[in-house]
Design a protein around this nucleic acid. Sequence first.
DNA 1: TATCACTGGAAAACTC
DNA 2: GAGTTTTCCAGTGATA
Lengths: 89, 89, 89, 89
Amino acid sequence: MVQAGGVAGDQLRSFIERIERLEEERKGIAEDIKEVYAGAKAVGFDTKIMRKVIAIRKMDQAERQEIESLLDVYLHAIEGGERPEPVSE
Amino acid sequence: MVQAGGVAGDQLRSFIERIERLEEERKGIAEDIKEVYAGAKAVGFDTKIMRKVIAIRKMDQAERQEIESLLDVYLHAIEGGERPEPVSE
Amino acid sequence: MVQAGGVAGDQLRSFIERIERLEEERKGIAEDIKEVYAGAKAVGFDTKIMRKVIAIRKMDQAERQEIESLLDVYLHAIEGGERPEPVSE
Amino acid sequence: MVQAGGVAGDQLRSFIERIERLEEERKGIAEDIKEVYAGAKAVGFDTKIMRKVIAIRKMDQAERQEIESLLDVYLHAIEGGERPEPVSE
DNA sequence: TATCACTGGAAAACTC
DNA sequence: GAGTTTTCCAGTGATA
């Protein structure tokens, strides 16, 4: 055997290096974000409020997606004949 | 010493039993919820859709709370003099 | 047109509200449990171990129920006049 | 009155949108990482161990950087003509 | 039964 | 350095 690991070892190394590269990137982006916050703070904005605003916008977006997925489910149910219409009677 | 644990043991036992009782309750409620879904399904409703609706309503509520907390932070910031008004200039 | 929210709508609304109420309760209990853990931690207990203990007791209980139900089956078989085979193996 | 959304508003909006874009990117990378782990798992590697390996390599790297920076300081001191004390302790 | 999403706890990161 | 918030993963429970 040539070296500890052999082919499996090469494969493992490849996976790990890919992850490490991605984590580097992610770290870089995290720093960018931090810098933007710092810049905003430097010109007088309250970063705590900014974070809240961003959180709310994120929730909005998530909700919109949920509603769309609801629509999908609903249309699918109609096709399937689950319950004829929401309002019969 | 009378028995393994003594006073500390009694205390621990008490904590654990309280938790177990609460978990029983929680389990009971989970069963109730399941029953309600079953009842709804029995009269023809699509539980998948129901779950979506409930999830969306939950998100609405969470968002409303986030907005209120944003307001709190905002008012606090004004008092603190962070940034005079959102729109100066 | 009856309007969205006819009888079926009322029924659906009722189901959903019941579920939401139950989920509220469940959430409340989850908070209670957390508080008990916090209290235990405050007086020096290791909550991680406590969780293990509770998990084990739960398994024990499940086992006991298993045995009891086995016993029930066995006794019913006897009452029914069938001659149960002696449990071999 | 300039209207909510004057210059300060534009500036704020710009900050927030930049952050949101960066968070999108970060999210994408996080997903990539997850996929790599999934791929590794699929061919039989233990991701838990992989995480450990990566953590250790990160520590190693931090250590190496520590050493290099120490070396830098030392070399600069030499160039500057100061006579560094031999590293004692 | 097996996949699928979700909840809850543990760990990590960031802020102050 | 402490405290709070995000992030991550494992366990649980629902659905098909």
